[in-house]
Design a binder for these strands. Structure first.
Length: 629
RNA sequence: GGGCCGGUAGUUCAGCGGUUAGAAUGCUGCCCUGUCACGGCAGAGGUCGCGGGUUCAAAUCCCGUCCGGCCCGCCA
């Protein structure tokens, strides 16, 4: 262990409490005797004069040490290093006109230091920490996560956490104003078979049995409705043991909402009100409500996804009819087999050269996974349309018809993919997003241009090829639409759900549904899912039992708080809006979790390791494990 | 489980078969009384992730492996 650097500098703090933060002082405070405490951000040593930028959460204040004011303090200040923690007592004085720093909120003043107390010294940090973002190098995230307490000193991260805090406050105030009760639900609950993998917690008192961490408090919040709580909200941690992404963490936070007697319209209205308050408080903008709505089918047909980014055009069109009788065998055989030819118009890209188009074709086959790309280019000079097919294979009139149907004019590019729905639409949707990014048509996440959208009328079930059965698209408690109920057993794939997603700029930020509240309907859905009565009773008996005693209709929504903050902050990763996030392999590099545990702990829990051959526990674990057994 | 990109000084990167591996920044020392990402001078700092191979010669090419990031699968 390194010794305390410059230990002789340390001095007791005789200054008492701080009088101001480092972001507080203004010209009006001139002449005030103040005490500031904080970190040394920057030191500018002029030999006969030392400037320190003192930093805390609130800002930077320039402190000046001069031998005329206090010889000892001046000498000590010359030995200060970045990230030392100091207390300064001094006098606020105005800066001359030419010395004002317009980049600092406190830039019109400085503090003339009369006394310095060095509260703690710092070793040289592994990377530069500074409120001056220009000093900041783009240090690798691995190192920043390992020393998260240093990274957290940067205003960029503090701003994100501040935003997150304000989102909590606005959310709680909003729901309180609407008569919601915040109720905590258990973190140690029971494993549910459907959905994501559970995190398990072994039970010491019941050897061999496990709690599970909630993927969401879904069943508990429904039981709160049965319990007559009427309106429930919780800002709650949820856990899913699946692979991570930039926008997916194994533990994440939801704004979980449930209402008795709720209709879809009430959920939309309530959620829109919250978003309006959030945007008013955090973005200082007025959202237009109600938000537009689109059915799942329309979203898939028009945007190739259930979370469309509607901020830019390039909508998808079914141009199958345009190619009827064209003689182009690839298209004709796909259409004859029930497939579609899907086109999108890319404005202003009709003059791309051959090499560019070849690269695009490669992207479509390699990255998107489509069989091929047929395209039509309309040069901006109005000259003849070109296509990447010989006119023998496909006479040009058919391409022209397709171009006309998608509204293409001179200078536009028309891209077509062919295949079976829904896959071809999803591929075309991927292509649309790619072209949107590539051409700059899709607004930047930081543009502030926000478009909310409700996606409605989801299918209740989708067929899972691997499992050979239907699975819930949302979750097994989602109510089918009343008109479709009769079809549940005959054509389960056609049943629509009373489910909805909230989409913001192409990101799913929430989803919910009106729930099943009768035992009979719930059992019918379980049946279709292949869960028979015995199994249902074993897994979800508590819910089915509750439904026997007068369960009211209810429904709600869950909003992804981390993603909301990420989008509001303009961050690229969830990790930038979570204080102590996990890396892509699910580890937390600072405390180094997950970690091995002592064999004694395992024994207490009646557990024994059965590791794959390529996993070698550290020596102390392996050794003690042998002793214990 | 798979694909792509990356790993060189404390940090961010350049170097991509041929002298002693560079730059910026940080760090250390000296100088400097109005700077504000202060400036000047000097200096220290490297197992080029790791292992193997090809070669007269490897940071550079090949194979393997580990680590990180992004994505696919997965995420009711």
């Amino acid at each position: 262990m390194a010794e305390q650097p410059r230990a002789d500098l340390l001095s007791p703090d005789t200054h008492g409490a701080r009088t101001h933060t480092c972001g507080a002082l203004r010209h009006d405070d001139t002449g005030e005797d103040v005490t500031l405490k904080g970190w040394v951000d920057t030191r500018r040593d002029h030999g006969g004069l030392v400037f320190i930028d003192l930093r805390d959460r609130y800002g930077l204040t320039q402190v000046v040490f001069s031998p005329q004011d206090n010889q000892d303090a001046y000498e000590a200040a010359g030995r200060l290093r970045r990230e030392d923690v100091i207390s300064v007592r001094g006098t606020v004085r105005p800066r001359g006109d030419e010395a004002v720093n317009p980049n600092l909120d406190t830039g019109t003043i400085e503090v003339k230091a009369d006394s310095l107390a060095v509260l703690n010294t710092a070793e040289t940090p592994p990377f530069v920490v500074s409120a001056h973002e220009e000093r900041q190098m783009d240090t690798g995230e691995a190192l920043r996560l390992k020393h998260r307490y240093l990274d957290l000193r940067r205003p960029a991260l503090q701003d994100n956490l501040t935003l997150r805090h304000r989102l909590y406050q606005t959310t709680r105030r909003y729901f309180d104003d609407h008569d919601f009760l915040e109720v905590e639900t258990p973190v140690l609950m029971k494993s549910t078979p459907e959905g994501a993998r559970d995190f398990l917690v072994p039970s010491r008192l019941h050897p061999g049995r496990f709690y599970a961490l909630p993927q969401s408090p879904q069943t508990y919040k429904q039981l709160l409705m049965v319990g007559g709580l009427d309106r429930y909200v919780q800002i709650v941690k949820c856990f899913r043991d699946e692979d991570l992404r930039a926008d997916r963490q194994p533990e994440f936070t939801q704004i979980d909402v449930e209402m008795t007697f709720a209709t879809e319209e009430q959920v939309y209205d309530l959620t829109e009100g919250l978003m309006a308050d959030l945007w008013a408080d955090l973005e200082d903008t007025t959202l237009e409500t109600p938000f537009p709505r689109m059915t799942y089918v329309e979203a898939l047909r028009t945007y190739g996804t259930d979370k469309p980014d509607t901020r830019f055009g390039m909508e998808l069109h079914d141009v199958s009819d345009c190619f009827a009788g064209s003689g182009f065998r690839v298209f004709e055989s796909i259409v004859d087999g029930g497939g579609d030819i899907v086109a999108l118009r890319v404005p202003g890209e009709g003059d791309r050269n051959r090499a560019q188009m070849d690269r695009l074709e490669d992207y479509v086959t390699d990255e998107i996974g489509a069989a091929g790309l047929i395209y039509f280019q309309l040069p901006s000079d109005g000259s003849e349309m070109t296509q990447n097919l010989s006119t023998d294979a496909l006479p040009k009139e058919y391409g022209r018809a397709a171009a006309e149907q998608v509204g293409a004019t001179a200078g536009d590019l028309v891209l077509t993919l062919a295949g079976d729905p829904p896959t071809v639409y999803e591929q075309a949707g991927d292509l649309r997003l790619y072209m949107g990014e590539e051409t700059g048509a899709r607004p930047d996440p930081r543009s502030g241009e926000d478009q909310f959208l409700w996606v409605t009328d989801f299918p209740l079930l989708e067929y899972d090829e691997d499992e050979g059965r239907y699975v819930s698209m949302h979750h097994p408690f989602t109510a089918p639409q009343a008109d479709d109920l009769d079809a549940l057993e005959e054509t389960p794939g056609d049943v629509q759900a009373r489910a909805y997603d909230l989409v913001l700029n192409g990101n799913e930020i929430g989803g919910g549904s009106i729930r099943i509240h009768t035992r009979e309907t719930q059992q019918r859905v379980f049946d279709v899912l292949g869960i028979d009565a015995d199994e249902a009773q074993e897994r979800f008996g508590f819910l089915l039992d509750a439904f026997r005693y007068g369960a009211p209709p209810h429904g709600g929504i869950a909003l992804g708080l981390d993603r909301l903050v990420m989008l509001l902050a303009g961050a690229d990763s969830l990790r930038d809006v979570i204080a102590f996030p996990k890396n892509q392999s699910g580890q937390e590099p600072m405390v180094q979790s997950p970690d091995w545990v002592d064999p004694e702990q395992l024994e207490t829990l009646a557990l024994r390791l059965d590791l794959p051959p390529d996993v070698e526990p550290p020596a102390h674990v392996a050794r003690r494990s042998r002793l214990a057994s």
